[in-house]
């Protein structure tokens, strides 16, 4: 009996190790290769050396050679800054607009409140991909092509975020607000001085969900921000991938740099993200 248990444990850990390899090897190869010259990338590929960092003696020139050269060839830092302006812009305005809407739907009684809630939830079904063309025509007519306004404004209002905020505020005890009302605090005051400071978790969750979605955005920035000065990192990577001569090590360096912001978010804010996930998973 005991022997059987040990065998099954060994089998379990072997499965886990194999799976870990399957899920991690591309990431490991990407990072490790970003520090190698192209010739070494190819020669290492035939052995496990492909996943090991280069020995100091093997590196031609500087350890960060690929990074330096990639940054010189294209403006990767500029693309990342553009992506940050785009995502953070959406987050700041999105948190304000959507939290207010969620609060209105959760707290106030007014005519048509049910209609607006239903309409907002119904818009969740519309695939964004199917409206990009008329949206582009609209943004073009507004003169917003190749501007941050054109990138950001269409995505400030977000039905999913409104829904998340509403769910959170529904569970929020209303005694505090009533006390503040008696003290003569205005509705705006109540919202910004009492509700917002006490709702950090839901603001964090929505901010992270928005960051992840829009940091990874591809189609909209591709069509609206075609100018190089406003190009986001995801689009920049696609151009860099095909830029002749294709240098594998430099591409891996660019991919690694583009992953760092997401890596930081997940490392430090995973708690809020998983909370948000669990919340959506169980509420739906």
């Amino acid at each position: 009996m005991r022997r059987k248990r040990i065998i099954s444990r060994v089998f379990l850990y072997m499965t886990l190790v194999v799976l870990t390899f399957v899920f991690l090897f591309p990431l490991a190869w990407m990072i490790v290769s970003s520090f190698k010259g192209d010739l070494q990338i190819f020669s290492d590929m035939t052995s496990l050396q492909a996943f090991l960092p280069p020995l100091p003696g093997d590196v031609e020139g500087h350890y960060f050679q690929n990074y330096i050269e990639a940054f010189q060839r294209v403006d990767i830092m500029g693309y990342i800054i553009n992506s940050l302006i785009y995502t953070i812009g959406i987050i700041i305005f999105g948190l304000l607009v959507n939290s207010m809407a969620g609060y209105a739907l959760a707290r106030f009684r007014f005519p048509l409140v049910g209609f607006w809630l239903g309409l907002i939830i119904a818009t969740l079904i519309i695939p964004p991909e199917s409206i990009f063309l008329p949206l582009y025509v609209l943004v073009y007519n507004l003169g917003w092509v190749n501007t941050f306004t054109g990138l950001i404004v269409p995505f400030i209002a977000n039905a999913f975020a409104i829904f998340l905020f509403r769910q959170f505020f529904m569970d929020f005890p209303s005694e505090l607000e009533e006390a503040a009302k008696i003290d003569g605090c205005s509705q705006l005051g109540i919202f910004f001085r009492i509700i917002v400071p006490l709702s950090k978790p839901v603001f964090a969750t929505v901010a992270i969900v928005l960051f992840i979605n829009h940091w990874n955005d591809f189609l909209w920035p591709l069509v609206v921000a075609s100018d190089e000065s406003i190009r986001t990192i995801q689009i920049g990577l696609q151009y860099f991938m095909n830029e002749e001569p294709v240098r594998w090590g430099q591409v891996m360096a660019a991919l690694t740099v583009a992953t760092i912001p997401m890596l930081l978010i997940f490392t430090f804010l995973q708690r809020y993200y998983v909370q948000g996930l669990t919340h959506t998973g169980s509420k739906n």
Partner: peptide, 17 residues
Amino acid sequence: TGYFFLSPAIILLGIFL
């Protein structure tokens, strides 16, 4: 007040969605 809080989101969704 309810419409004051709700209208920015509704207007944006109306125009851009």
